[in-house]
């Protein structure tokens, strides 16, 4: 298997379409015969990230690189940035408005769940500029 690169532009205005990129990556991993456990981890981590980009950051770009060793994901947004990463990593802590909760998200589980489902995760954030989350799931 050679290295496969995928790019997605995430529309921050359309909550209905959030998850399309994750679904597309999941389909690719299945086609490539990646193990179900790893496929599930990538799907959950990426979907949580994609939802975050839509509800907090007006969308952005997702780049995914699939190699025989790992799936590497870079989620870059131009949103408000994260004021306190330690706090954002705590389960149950959320800045999501009630409107987002009524859609079934915003329980403060997104970032912790991304960390739980990835083997590597880094967050780079600049207030007022945006956040880039890099994750890897080993195959």
């Amino acid at each position: 298997m050679s290295i496969l690169k995928l790019h997605y532009e995430i529309d921050g205005e359309d909550f209905t379409r959030a998850g399309e990129a994750s679904a597309s990556v999941k389909k690719r991993l299945r086609q490539l015969g990646v193990k179900p456990d790893a496929t599930r981890k990538v799907s959950i981590a990426l979907y949580e990230g994609e939802i975050n980009m839509v509800i907090h950051a007006h969308g952005g770009d997702i780049d995914v690189e699939i190699s025989p060793e790992a799936v590497r994901m870079v989620l870059a947004d131009r949103g408000p940035g994260i004021e306190n990463i330690d706090q954002a990593m705590k389960e149950g802590w959320s800045t999501a408005p009630d409107e987002v909760r009524s859609l079934g998200f915003g329980a403060g589980m997104g970032l912790p769940n991304m960390k739980k489902n990835s083997d590597e995760m880094q967050i780079e954030t600049v207030l007022g500029k945006g956040t880039t989350v890099t994750m890897a799931v080993y195959l």
Binding site: A18, G19, S22
Partner: peptide, 15 residues
């Protein structure tokens, strides 16, 4: 009891 497209997406991600 939630009705929106993300219910289907979530179900999809969780197989």
């Amino acid at each position: 009891g939630l009705v929106n497209c993300q219910v289907i997406r979530t179900a999809e991600m969780m197989d």
